[in-house]
Structures are given as C-alpha cells and as structure tokens.
C-alpha cells in the first residue's frame, strides 16, 4: 500500500513535472496520430521513470553532499530540492551553467552539464517527497503570524500559487530552509540576485530585514 502510494506519487510528479520529452512528443499531431493513447502514456511513464533513475544516480554523486540524500538539505544556506517543480530546477541549472546566476558552489557543478542530464536531475528532485529539514527549529508563533500576514499583501500566491508549492519555473516555498529563504530574499531585495526574470526583485522591494525574517520563518514552518 505504502509502496503503491509512493510509486503513484512519483509517477504523478514525473508526469506533471517533466514537460521535456514526454509532453512534447504527445503534442506533435503527426507523431501522436501514429500511436494509441495507451501506448503514449506507457511510453511517457517509462521515459519519466528512466529519467528519474538516471537523475537519482547523478544526484547521489553530484548533489547529495550539500542538498541531502533525500533532497532535504541539512546544510545551512543550501536549499532543499525535494519536490521542487522540475522546470524550476532545470531553469536554475541553466542559469548557473550559462553564467547568468552566480553561485560559486554551483558554477563547477553546472559547467558543461548537458541539457539531458539537467532534465534527469530535475525529474529526480521533482519526484522526491518534499519535507522540512531535520534541524528545523521550533515555531515562533509571533514571527510565524507576522510572516503569514505579509503573504497576501506581497502577492506571493500570484506566482507561487495559493498553496505556495510553486509551478513550472516557480519554486516551492513551504518547508524550505529558513536560512536559505531569508538570504535569498535579502539578495533579491538588495539587487544581488536575479531569477529568470526580475519579478522577485520587485516582489520584495522595500521589505525590512525583520519582515524578511518573518516571511522566511513562516514559509519554512509550513508543511
């Protein structure tokens, strides 16, 4: 039962999160006309599973030391990747590789990495069940409430969805490491970081350090 549930979750995550090969093939009328729907979905599932497997092997070698064996980071300042939308992981890796986003620890990892490898890694991390890091501190109710009160006015849900779990190129926020969230928002606010576009720079403009700390606490405490 538990295994079946996990498998279903992984398949669902892969099907939703792997826009690359599978969905594109399904979109092409000329291609799909030659195959039945069942064959396509079986093929898609097969492709998604093998992408995850390849990604898992690569992640164990290249990512786990910092981002955690299960994709939940135990390292200060390093984000958890478990359950992140695949396109988010892909986009950030491309930005690292192309030199558009500068994080020294990631530069060497991303350098020369093939698109297919990046997509495999993304499929792997998207398939992992998300959750908070083991060292998450206890909730500070006042800080939590202060952060919660900023979610609406700051329009976080517009891109990150009302669940704050992200979509496509937009990351999942809940359960993320508090120190990473805090530093990231400060970097956006102070113009030290850009994303795929400058939307986050606008979203955090004018926030005080205390407000950012509250937001980071709230988001990290949400499950």
């Amino acid at each position: 039962m538990r295994l079946a549930g996990l498998l279903a979750a992984a398949l669902f995550a892969a099907a939703v999160a792997l826009p690359a090969a599978a969905q594109d093939a399904a979109r092409g009328a000329a291609i799909s006309a030659e195959r039945s729907g069942a064959a396509i979905s079986a093929e898609r599932r097969g492709a998604a599973i093998s992408a995850e497997r390849r990604g898992a092997a690569m992640a164990a070698e290249r990512c786990a030391a910092c981002h955690g064996e299960n994709g939940r980071s135990a390292m200060e300042g390093t984000p958890s990747l478990a359950g992140q939308p695949a396109l988010f992981v892909t986009t950030q890796m491309i930005l690292f590789r192309e030199g558009l986003r500068q994080v020294p620890a990631m530069t060497a990892v991303a350098e020369g990495m093939a698109d297919g490898t990046i997509e495999d890694l993304a499929a792997h991390f998207a398939s992992l069940p998300p959750g908070p890091p083991e060292d998450r501190r206890p909730r500070d109710e006042a800080l939590f409430a202060a952060g919660q009160a900023l979610i609406g006015p700051r329009n976080c849900a517009v891109c990150h969805l009302p669940t704050l779990t992200g979509r496509e190129q937009v990351p999942r926020l809940i359960g993320q490491r508090e120190d990473f969230l805090e530093r990231t928002m400060i970097e956006y606010r102070d113009g030290l970081r850009v994303g795929a576009d400058s939307q986050m720079n606008g979203a955090v403009v004018g926030l005080t350090d205390a407000q950012i700390a509250a937001l980071a606490h709230y988001l990290s405490q949400r499950d």
Partner: peptide, 25 residues
C-alpha cells in the same frame, strides 16, 4: 503593489499566467 507586471489587473481567482519558457534542447 509588488505584484509582477504581468499580473497587474488580474481578476481574483484567475489562474492565467504566461507560459513557461523551455530552456533545454
């Protein structure tokens, strides 16, 4: 409102958003 430019004026409840770009081969 620090809402992203594309979402300024979006009606409550709308889920319309720009399509994500594909950045891989």
């Amino acid at each position: 409102a620090p809402v992203p430019g594309w979402a300024v004026g979006r009606p409550e409840g709308s889920t319309l958003a720009p399509h994500a770009a594909r950045m891989t081969v």
